[in-house]
């Protein structure tokens, strides 16, 4: 095993593909694990949604996850936002599965790359902008212009509002990326430390028990973070979708 904690994030090309418009579109290990994640989500829901009247254990799991996201969308954005339910649902389960698959040894954590998380965040804000203009027309731009302000204040407030609006999805992406990367680096460091202490032998090898306990705790924490970050991404997407429906706030 490599003992460089950053090595696990390395992108390797698996299948070379011709460039399109100067962009490298080769199939990489990241792409492979994304495909595995998507297939896992599809298989999970194919197996758990048999539609039996009395749900078994697995079917309840599938139904509960549906209800969980449905309630989240309804509660944070309102029932009219259920149009976006499929989007939030896909987002949540893709991130959740990507995070959890990434916890397996030898697996690649796709969400630990800014490119992946930013793509999801940009898609989210794109949806908010397009749907907002679609639904409200150009009145939608009023979200940048708070009412009841003295005229000169608008010169200051409007750019600030625009920057806050644009920075929210970036925050989303950075948060997911930073959490996953930091967690995996920390795990790797602790694990390397165990090997290092055992390699020293003698009394030092006995001291390896400390990082072993640390690693165990970190693994549990990372599973929590994997779920929590998927949840946070989904819930904040719902909060941003508020801007589509509630223009005059």
């Amino acid at each position: 095993m490599a003992n460089d904690p950053m090595k696990q994030f390395e992108i390797k090309k698996i299948l070379e593909l011709p460039q399109i418009a100067g962009q490298d579109i080769s199939f990489t290990n990241s792409s492979l694990w994304m495909v595995i994640g998507v297939v896992a989500v599809i298989v999970f829901f194919a197996l758990t949604t048999k539609g039996k009247l009395i749900p078994g254990r697995m079917q309840s799991l599938g139904e509960m996850s549906y209800e969980f996201i449905a309630n989240m969308v309804k509660d944070t954005t309102g029932p009219e936002a259920m149009k976006f339910f499929p989007f939030v649902f896909c987002l949540f389960f893709f991130i959740l599965f990507a995070n959890i698959i990434g916890m397996n040894p030898y697996a690649f954590t796709t969400t630990s790359h800014l490119a992946v998380t930013v793509a999801m965040a940009l898609f989210t804000i794109g949806i908010v902008i397009v749907a907002g203009i679609w639904k409200n027309g150009f009145k939608w731009f009023k979200i940048f212009v708070p009412s009841d302000l003295p005229l000169p204040m608008y010169l200051l407030i409007v750019p600030i509002e625009i920057i806050s609006f644009l920075s929210r999805p970036v925050t989303l992406a950075v948060r997911l990326f930073a959490n996953m990367t930091a967690g995996h680096v920390m795990l790797k460091l602790f694990a390397i430390f165990i090997a290092f202490l055992v390699g020293k032998g003698g009394l030092m090898a006995g001291a390896a028990i400390v990082p072993i306990i640390g690693t165990l705790g970190l693994v549990a924490l990372e599973f929590l973070v994997a779920g929590l970050q998927a949840f946070v991404f989904a819930i904040l997407t719902c909060v941003y979708l508020n801007d589509v429906y509630h223009v005059d706030h």
Binding site: I162, S164, L166, S167, V170, T171, V174, R175, A178, N179
Partner: peptide, 17 residues
């Protein structure tokens, strides 16, 4: 995490614009 990323990202977005 949340507070610090919010501040840094806002500054970066402003500078980018």
């Amino acid at each position: 995490w949340r507070l610090s990323t919010e501040l840094v990202v806002s500054i970066l977005v402003g500078m980018g614009l």
